[in-house]
């Protein structure tokens, strides 16, 4: 097990300089080493072929991987998909997948996780987290959990959040205020770390070589 892919791959693309190796480039850009990236490629292949075998993760395939149901829409999963899809073409390519997951690595710095979480909460991408966005997320969470809160309770918990996070008192939370807020409340980033990412080669022991695909896909 381990990096047999790398060895075969290095033979296949031996004429390339090391810095042109797409897996090596991803390893430099992310918290993953080359062996991790090979293991992630197995997961990517599985997800990207689960509905249409086209080497790209569609939103339906992402939902299928996440919830076991391709039709299960979820505001937060939508936001994560959109942030992973940095090329904004409606699908996640392998490089986007690896760079996105890197933020969730146990070794990724907390400010990086906080910045990603900020973008998740900034639904309309205004550069601020605003009250109506927080309300929308609360309503989505309640619906997902089949819970019912009165409007007064919702207003109360939004007020409390802004009381604690909106230090300037201008009714919106900017990235600096958010960084300070999560530093005081690290539990808010509980889902920004995926323990599985620490030991990927144990998770995906059996992978096959597909070097041409991985190279084309990253580029």
């Amino acid at each position: 097990m381990g990096c047999s892919f790398s060895k075969q791959r290095q033979r296949l693309i031996g004429h390339h300089k090391q810095e042109e190796d797409p897996a090596a480039v991803l390893a430099v850009q992310t918290c993953f080493d080359i062996c991790d990236i090979e293991a992630l490629y197995e997961l990517f292949k599985k997800l990207s072929s689960s509905i249409v075998d086209d080497g790209l993760i569609s939103k339906e395939e992402f939902q299928l991987g996440l919830f076991g149901n391709s039709k299960k829409r979820n505001l937060f999963a939508d936001r994560i998909f959109d942030l992973f899809d940095s090329g904004k073409d409606g699908v996640i390519e392998f490089g986007e997948f690896v760079r996105g997951l890197s933020v969730f690595h146990p070794a990724a710095p907390q400010p990086q996780k906080a910045a990603f979480a900020f973008r998740l909460h900034d639904i309309r991408q205004s550069g601020f987290i605003e009250r109506d966005e927080v309300r929308e997320m609360i309503v989505a969470l309640l619906s997902e959990s089949q819970l019912v809160f009165s409007d007064d309770i919702i207003q109360l918990i939004i007020d409390k959040a802004f009381q604690e996070a909106d230090l300037k008192g201008d009714g919106k939370i900017d990235p600096d205020e958010w960084q300070q807020f999560v530093a005081r409340n690290p539990s808010l980033l509980r889902n920004m770390t995926i323990p599985h990412l620490k030991d990927l080669n144990k998770e995906f022991r059996n992978f096959e070589l597909s070097p041409d695909f991985i190279e084309d896909d990253i580029r």
Binding site: L47, G65, L66, L75, A77, I138, E144, A161, N185, N191
Partner: peptide
């Protein structure tokens, strides 16, 4: 301390990517 809005939001299943690593 009581929960604020962001505590509650952080419990969404959609935020929990560990599902991608589990067999369905």
């Amino acid at each position: 301390a009581s929960l604020n809005a962001f505590d509650i939001i952080s419990f969404s299943k959609g935020f929990d990517l560990s599902g991608l690593f589990e067999e369905k």
